[in-house]
Design a binder for these strands. Structure first.
Lengths: 223, 223, 223, 223
DNA sequence: TATGAATGAGGGTTCATTCAT
DNA sequence: TATGAATGAACCCTCATTCAT
């Protein structure tokens, strides 16, 4: 009987635990959302904990109940953003079944679009600005962002090389090169806040230009 | 007599004016030098006016006699830096008389080295971080930095195209593409503070890789 | 039947009451133990309720279920400490059966050692620091600490006076004087954190010096 | 002529310098006065920089223009107080020309009165409370306070010993012992905020009691 | 014009206390 | 009753800017 009671109690306890754990996670996410808004808009230094608290709808003290401090909150925000906002970049490489050139063009288009998105643009700004003060920031960004993309891409390129579609010595390096080529003009200029046409047509044109350039370097069939 | 006196007076006044104007300009440059040291080391938000005053060897009040405030001083610093520190980038394109591939390799090497230099690396960090708050920053940077380089480069490429060495439709776009290709791996990773080999040999290797890639896209003689 | 039930109920209730009262007292002591550790180490202002809760192994809320607040907890801690940690001081006066001078020397030694002990040193620091904000602190300290000791001592001295060993007009004042003489150099300097030799030999030497001084004032046989 | 002008200029400059230096010292003293009020009333931890600024009639920022921070301000305050408020203690030993017993009584009276003064009482509280966190506090207090007094006193005692008025082996230790004896009852209890009669008559009575006790220990003529 | 002391708003952070669970 | 997340006032300190000298 006592064991039953115990069970019930522990069951209740477990319920309560999981309920409160869930509430905590919810609050944490609420804070992270507020932090995201502020950090993305103002960067690390420009953001204030008061602002974040206000934006998140909690008191300043609560921020410190959930995170060790501004730096800690920032890191958590950055990891969260990197994990969620760079997915498209990763996913862009995965769809297949098209001919190689079309695949390249679609990939280039996706890369440009992701890099132009407000989230990744802000993340890039922040990481470049704070890289020296937050060494693991870049690591996080790289791990969740470029690294996954580059892995997928170089694997894909290696497969294509094995199929004889391309000739590539160093797929990893070539993948990085392709990513850089995608950033020509539009992404590059937008990062500097320079005026540039970034409508779909311009992006498409650039993607074609990039893909064709790439094919000229590595393709086997282009004459 | 009054005219003589007038002349003498205005002459004196003019002398004094020019002398004081010169002194003012000297003080201004002194301040800009101090500001440069501090801004490059700490960024915009991280720099304090006291620090700059100390570094420049003037009082804090003097800062405000010569500039409207921190933002104004920052903009002036940035223009100064852009004008003076990005020269190498511009110069790199100018030397000629070598065969095309060697020219490309030397150019790529120079571009990578300039972009890796502390000054331009810091400038890049600053501009990317503050571009949204200082809209004309990027403009300055672009005008004194990339624009001149790209102009030189596209002119050079157009000349080579005219000579039949390369086939290039849009020299300006191709110039931008080449600049991006130069930033593959080393520059890109260094901006994110990621570990990367950046010794002379690695740079040279990358320059060759980039130049050869470029030649495969645009060269006429490679088959 | 109702009376039986009543009895059983009230019995149960009483049992439960006493059981829960005991549990409450246990928890209270648990808290006081934690508070002791923290207060003695950090003083009143330096201690935080979180720290105390952690040290006591309870939640912060529980602190407020058992005590009205920080000040209340502090007072309770202080009384507890005064009651338990100043015993040695009290006990030191009690052992007898030796000749008077030896008794004085042993007493002086004990007094110095007790006053140098971390617990009483901390208590002294705390009481002197917070006496103005916690008026009854000193009262507690005095009642449990010096008062008992002085009572024992003056009783002892009065007995010795009655035996003709010493001539003492005001035993209570003389007792206080003796206690002060014991604090010469070593205790006094240690309270100010000044460097001083406090090894057993130095204490013993000081005790002899103090006892002999005392005998010269009050002794009858020293000529 | 230019030298004259130079002289005049430098003269003016010197005047201005000394004027501004004077103004700075005045402001510094103004701050120290405010800090004194607050620190003496609330101790180190209990005092807030806002409170001090308000009390001193300056802005919070000004505090930091004149002192490195709270700890620095506190140290300056403490040294100032020690230097100025413990003078009487030092002076009390110096008047001579009376017979020895009268000198002792006057000295004891002075010591008790100084130690009972609000300033030295507060300083003592603060030093005992913060000695562990500000190691040089006690040193300052000791140097300006007890050390000078003890030096004077032991010199005086040594002289009296040479004159054959007293027999003293270790004048320094005896001086410390005398100081402790002076703290019997009144000073001791006041430090603990315990009720005690501290009117002039009580002090005089205690001084006589202490002096006579001292004479019984060290005097040569008392039978 | 040059100075630097004064300002005060705002920075990040801590903490005693409360209260829903 | 026990919990600990939430609170918000207060903490020390920094800094861009002003202004009397």
């Amino acid at each position: 009987m006592s064991s039953i009671e115990d069970d019930r109690l522990s069951g209740t306890a477990r319920d309560e635990d999981s309920a409160s754990a869930c509430a905590i996670r919810a609050k944490r996410n609420q804070i992270l959302a507020g932090a995201g808004t502020v950090f993305l808009a103002s960067g690390y230094e420009g953001a204030s904990m008061s602002q974040i608290a206000r934006e998140a709808g909690v008191s300043k003290g609560t921020l410190y109940n959930h995170f060790d401090g501004k730096a800690s909150l920032f890191s958590a925000f950055f990891e969260e953003q990197s994990r969620t906002k760079l997915d498209m970049l990763f996913a862009a490489v995965n769809d297949d079944g098209l001919d190689f050139r079309t695949g390249l063009i679609q990939l280039a288009t996706a890369v440009v679009k992701v890099l132009l998105s407000p989230a990744s643009m802000s993340l890039y700004r922040i990481i470049v600005a704070e890289a020296s003060q937050f060494p693991n920031l870049a690591d996080t960004f790289w791990r969740y962002g470029f690294a996954r993309t580059l892995d997928s891409l170089s694997t894909w390129l290696a497969r294509k090389a094995a199929e004889g579609v391309v000739v590539i010595d160093d797929p990893a390096l070539t993948a990085e090169q392709f990513m850089m080529m995608c950033q020509t003009r539009i992404v590059q200029r937008r990062r500097l806040m320079l005026p540039v046409e970034d409508d779909a047509a311009s992006i498409q044109k650039l993607a074609v230009f990039t893909a064709d350039s790439f094919l000229k370097i590595y393709g086997t069939e282009h004459q």
